[in-house]
């Protein structure tokens, strides 16, 4: 077996007395799209918050490409190649597409103590390309993200991760609050990850979305992984029995 791109070993997390993760171990190989399902409070969010640097585990290890990684902040996770697409969408509606693509990672012409002049020409050029790469056709990188549909906004967030060559995408219920048509678009983006050899962890309440786009289904309940099978070898009914 090849080395997993991301691996958790015995992760534990307590929140003021609640044992949210009880020794979760999970190894994901490069290019795999894993569907993570489970009820509210099953520990899905806790697990991905640890992987995306929002929270830290109380015990256990995270390994990225075999190397132990202590993910301290969201920025640190991004630097390690882990990009998270949040359900509330991490784009700023009052800013342009080009600026959104580079939020927090702006290319600078020069800088002093980390503050400097934006390379706006490069931002516009590269954002046009990044957007086209995810098959999103938008008229201008200067359009405000607030004018886009919900699915297009998720597309911008995914284009952002692609542009920064993220290795692992965590998609935290990216289809919430979207229409059927927009949802299909986002599922298309998820499938697109695979063709580019990018690993995905797709969290969703909707089993149909998971089976449409994932290679493997992992189910959590009460802070533990209770089910883990290739999507081709199982069915929605079987997964439901474990939840």
């Amino acid at each position: 077996m090849t080395m997993p791109i991301i691996e958790c070993r015995g992760l534990h997390k307590w929140y003021s007395g609640v044992h949210a993760l009880k020794g979760v171990s999970l190894a994901i190989t490069r290019g795999e799209i894993v569907g993570l399902v489970g009820d509210n409070g099953a520990g899905k969010s806790t697990l991905i918050k640890i992987l995306s640097g929002v929270h830290r585990q109380n015990a256990g290890d995270v390994l990225i490409e075999g190397k132990p990684a202590d993910i301290r902040t969201p920025k640190h996770a991004m630097r390690l190649g882990i990009e998270t697409i949040y359900q509330y969408n991490a784009t700023v509606p009052t800013m342009s597409i080009a600026r959104n693509l580079f939020i927090g990672r702006e290319p600078l012409q020069w800088s002093l103590f980390g503050i400097g002049l934006l390379d706006q020409a490069r931002m516009r050029q590269e954002s046009v390309k990044a957007i086209a790469d995810v098959d999103l056709h938008l008229r201008s990188p200067d359009a405000l993200v607030g004018e886009l549909s919900g699915g297009q906004r998720q597309g911008v967030a995914i284009a952002r991760g692609m542009h920064f060559k993220s290795k692992v995408f965590i998609l935290d219920e990216p289809t919430n609050h979207l229409s059927v048509k927009e949802t299909n678009k986002v599922i298309g983006f998820v499938k697109g990850l695979k063709t580019q050899g990018i690993t995905g962890i797709f969290i969703s309440h909707n089993m149909h979305h998971v089976f449409q786009s994932c290679d493997r289904v992992v189910a959590m309940a009460r802070g533990e992984i209770v089910f883990d099978k290739p999507a081709a070898d199982t069915s929605i009914d079987e997964v439901h029995d474990y939840l």
Binding site: P74, K75, Y86, Y88, N89, A90, T94, M95, I103, L118
Partner: peptide
């Protein structure tokens, strides 16, 4: 300037993007 606008435009997104 980008960070100022992002922090006011959508604080959660700005924080999540490491600003």
């Amino acid at each position: 300037g980008n960070w100022i606008k992002a922090s006011g435009g959508f604080l959660e997104a700005a924080g999540a993007m490491g600003i």
